[in-house]
Design a protein around this nucleic acid. Sequence first.
DNA 1: CGCGTGGGTAAGTAGTAACTTACGGTAAGT
DNA 2: ACTTACCGTAAGTTACTACTTACCCACGCG
Lengths: 111, 111
Amino acid sequence: MTDQTALARAFTALADPTRREIFERVASRAQAVGELAGDLPVSRPAVSQHLKVLSDAGLVTARADGTRRIYELDPQGLAGLRDYLDGFWQRSLHAFARAAEQHHQSRQENR
Amino acid sequence: MTDQTALARAFTALADPTRREIFERVASRAQAVGELAGDLPVSRPAVSQHLKVLSDAGLVTARADGTRRIYELDPQGLAGLRDYLDGFWQRSLHAFARAAEQHHQSRQENR
DNA sequence: CGCGTGGGTAAGTAGTAACTTACGGTAAGT
DNA sequence: ACTTACCGTAAGTTACTACTTACCCACGCG
């Protein structure tokens, strides 16, 4: 899983500062669009567009509540990113251990 | 504690497909600039610019070898991203456990 | 010393992304 | 049914980014 396009979408989504701010607010508490827009220095349509990007990236999900749409964190996209980074993390540990070993100076850091 | 600007740089760096490709190649094996450019459909200066972005993000480091510059993976930026995502991961686990606990009796108070 | 190899930087350009205002559409209240 | 609240989409503008070519600097070898 975690195909390349999904990863690209997730990284691209979190690259934008405003979008990352929206993501963090949604993660801390499920919120409606207008609620988010009220606390942010951008217009409501802008927030709506950002939420679409986050949704396409699998980082948030939406549920309807009357005329409002409540957005909340989606663990799926998060797991993809985590797994992806973990792969490199392993490699870096190996490379680092190898380099450290060569200097007779063992330094291990884990989790 | 991985400040905000460092995170932004890391996400921005990995958002671009070409740059992520370069990052992955460097992660798999330490390589020189020309070596990377030879296997990629972009010019050498482009690779150089991408490496600068990755370097500023703390994702790769460079060491000199004669006239060549060997780039390799830097665990530092990787750790920052991992820690950041882990924070949300915890939250998502809690939320998910809470949601699963009460099957579909979920009705949250809003506004 | 020249000369070739290897790379970072400058400047310019095309494409894209983030924002705005304007509009349309659905659900609840009177 | 009319109105109000809430939201997504369309269209247009502006800013940024990824790429190119051209240029310049450092190192190593004959």
